[in-house]
Design a protein around this nucleic acid. Sequence first.
DNA 1: ATTATATTAGCCAAAATTTGTCAAGTTAAT
DNA 2: ATTAACTTGACAAATTTTGGCTAATATAAT
Lengths: 91, 91
Amino acid sequence: MIGDKIRELREQNNILLRQLAAQLDMDTAMLSKMERGDRFFRKEDIIQLSRIFNQSEEELLTLWLVDKILKTIDEEEYKEPALKLALKSIK
Amino acid sequence: MIGDKIRELREQNNILLRQLAAQLDMDTAMLSKMERGDRFFRKEDIIQLSRIFNQSEEELLTLWLVDKILKTIDEEEYKEPALKLALKSIK
DNA sequence: ATTATATTAGCCAAAATTTGTCAAGTTAAT
DNA sequence: ATTAACTTGACAAATTTTGGCTAATATAAT
């Protein structure tokens, strides 16, 4: 989700993993995993990426949070009613 | 959320914390925390509780999952768009 | 006020999860 | 076959979660 988006942006801008990783001050392997959804980005990294690629922070942070949500409901039976209720409860 | 529900059910049935805790084979203090939302119930406990109180497993597990979701988005800015997107993505 | 019962809070260690690093492995292009 | 880009797996360090114990607090009855 957010990983795909970052990869897309990175490729559109012809930046290599190791170059972007350097900018974020992280290991290349880690960024690779993050783009592929194996690991989570840190929130701060997302904020920095939104600057680097000139994207709205809201958009990227939202995608990032979606991944977190999906991870917590992953494998659970009642995802849909739970999400709906959660949505209600925050409004 | 799920804690309130369990407490409600327990009180309606005039069961003491320590009695219910015994049935669930857990520490009384732990159950107290769970009812108050300080700690999560284990999924198995919820299933057992649905039998004890004759409630639908779906209802209780859903409330339980809502709590998990709320915890992961707690403090985050873009809860609402993220929940909406998550909902879309699972359908 | 004292006792008895019920609930909550605080602390700590065990267990589980997450995170970062490194080295080895793939893939794709030349 | 060599090289550059990327991916993967294994591992330790760090962080978070969990469960249990004990003590503190609250409530009610005598």
